[in-house]
Computed example of a mutant assay.
Amino acid sequence: MWNFLWHLRGATPVPARISDAQVLERVEKLLADQRKPVIPSRPTELRFESPLWDSPLGPNWLAMVIYDRGSFRIEHGAHGRRLRYDLRSLHGFVFCLGAAIIFFAAGVMNARLPGGVRYAAFAFTWLYGMNMVLAWARVPRAIRKAVSAE
């Protein structure tokens, strides 16, 4: 129910001139560029798992840095082919929630309960919210660009 907070789901159309294998190659290259290790599964699907603690000092400017798990699959439908993706940022969510708890404790010690709530809300919104706003803008664009690249 609440998993929309740590999931990014979407789809992008696949151009007719590109085969399924080419689409998956392009997605695999995108994942390699984003430093996400690919786990092959089915012929029309790719997955990755990359816990945040695997490379805590890795590059944080990458579009998909916040996501720890994801899947990409090609669907054939009445309106053509689409690449569906489901990306998860649960580890980032939990990390930012933990940081918010620390800010809550500091706020309670300095400004009582209302101050603690304000500090925690600000910390969580800033840490997680800003990462997600950037990801919601950058990740779908990167996927579309990878799929439709000439």
Rank of each mutant, 00 (worst) to 15 (best):
G70H: 01
V94E: 09
L113W: 14
A111M: 12
M109I: 13
G116C: 06
L5S: 06
A111Q: 14
R112Q: 14
D86Y: 07
E75C: 06
G70N: 00
G92P: 08
W6L: 01
E150W: 08
R88L: 12
F122G: 10
R69I: 04
F93V: 08
E49G: 07
P114M: 09
S89Q: 09
A111P: 08
G58N: 00
R69T: 10
H79K: 14
L57V: 07
R81I: 01
S148F: 00
V27I: 09
R73V: 08
R141Y: 09
K29Q: 15
P15I: 01
L62F: 08
F48K: 01
S50C: 07
R138G: 06
G10K: 05
L8V: 03
R118A: 15
W6A: 02
I101W: 15
A99R: 12
T44G: 10
A21N: 06
A21H: 09
I74T: 02
R42G: 12
P40G: 02
R26N: 07
L87F: 05
L57T: 09
H79I: 06
A123F: 03
S55E: 15
G129H: 07
M132D: 11
P56V: 05
K145E: 14
E45N: 05
G80L: 04
F95M: 14
V117E: 10
D20T: 07
D86G: 08
L46M: 02
L90I: 13
I39T: 10
A16C: 00
A146Q: 04
L127K: 07
L46G: 04
F4E: 11
I74A: 02
I66H: 09
C96N: 12
S148R: 08
L90H: 12
G92Y: 10
V23Q: 04
A123H: 03
L8P: 00
S148V: 04
R141S: 06
V133M: 13
F124N: 04
I143D: 05
F48C: 02
P51M: 00
Q22T: 09
S41G: 03
L62K: 11
A11Q: 10
E25H: 08
E28D: 09
A146P: 05
P140I: 00
M109C: 13
F104K: 10
W61N: 14
H76V: 11
A149V: 05
A142G: 02
A106L: 15
G107Y: 05
